[in-house]
Simulated assay, not measured.
Amino acid sequence: MATKLRLQRRGRKNYAFYQIIVADSRAPRDGKYIERIGSYNPNTNPATITLDFDRALYWLQVGAQPTDTVRNILSDEGVLMKKHLLGGVTKGAFDEAEAEKRFETWKNSKLQATQKLKNKDEEAQRAAEKARLDAEKEVNKAKAEALAKKKAETEAANNPVVEETTEEIVEEVVEEVVETVEATETKAEEPKVEEPKAEEPKAETPAADETPAEEPKAE
């Protein structure tokens, strides 16, 4: 039977991830499969891939055909490179030790290239984040200035400030002093109101026609 390496969809709506399976080419996409050899999650950056390297290499060697997406995954993981090197060993171009040495060299270069891309993406992400923060600071600064201006205008409308010259201020001070002095003088000139004294009771004198009582004469 024709065997294929392909993806089987899993997950929920708008968040799909895939299993890497070995299945009969006649089986439906989400139907029965022979073996599961890994998974692929494109929702992360970079995509998360788990793969059973030896089983994937085995199925390629026995003739299983990968789909385009699975082929790209196997290429990135080095399965196709290892299969190519083992083919050279089978043909007698070099021995297995040389094949392993070449594979390790390729793997290290691949890791370095991947790390460079990852660092570049992180730098770009940091730059974008910095630009976003700077733009947000500028917007906040503009809002703060507009709010301060509006607040100042409101305070100015509620508490209008009258600009006066020095001469006008001096005149106002002189007028206030004169008014204060006049008020003091007016208060001093007001006549004092004497309160009426309470009348003292007068002593009664005997009337003129009244004859004082005769004292008894001594015999």
Rank of each mutant, 00 (worst) to 15 (best):
A148R: 10
A127K: 15
Q125L: 12
T165C: 04
A142K: 14
S39W: 10
K118S: 14
N108I: 04
V162L: 08
E199R: 06
T48Q: 13
N119T: 11
Y18V: 06
D76R: 14
A203E: 15
F103L: 06
D95Y: 02
K4M: 11
T67H: 01
A213W: 09
R132F: 12
P216F: 08
L5W: 05
N108G: 00
Q65H: 06
P160W: 06
V193H: 07
K32T: 09
R36E: 12
L7C: 02
V170H: 12
D95L: 01
V22A: 04
I37V: 10
E200H: 03
A56Q: 01
V193G: 07
L60G: 11
Q8S: 08
S75T: 13
E100S: 04
E219N: 10
A131M: 06
K217R: 09
W106V: 04
R26M: 04
N119K: 13
A93C: 01
L147P: 00
A2D: 15
T184I: 08
K91H: 06
K120G: 10
V174G: 04
A156E: 00
I37Y: 03
N45W: 10
E122H: 13
S75Q: 12
K107F: 08
D24G: 07
R132K: 14
T211N: 14
V162D: 08
A135C: 05
N72E: 08
Q125A: 15
M1P: 04
E104M: 10
L57E: 05
Q115Y: 03
K13A: 05
A64G: 02
E77A: 04
K141V: 08
E195W: 08
L7S: 02
E172T: 14
Y18D: 03
K149T: 09
R36M: 08
T3D: 05
G78L: 01
A47W: 10
T69G: 02
E136H: 03
G78C: 02
R36Q: 14
E182R: 13
K4A: 11
T105W: 09
R10W: 04
K4G: 03
A97C: 00
L117V: 07
K150Q: 10
S25M: 04
E35G: 05
E136V: 08
G92Q: 02
I34N: 01
Y15D: 12
R9I: 10
A157R: 10
L133M: 12
T105Y: 10
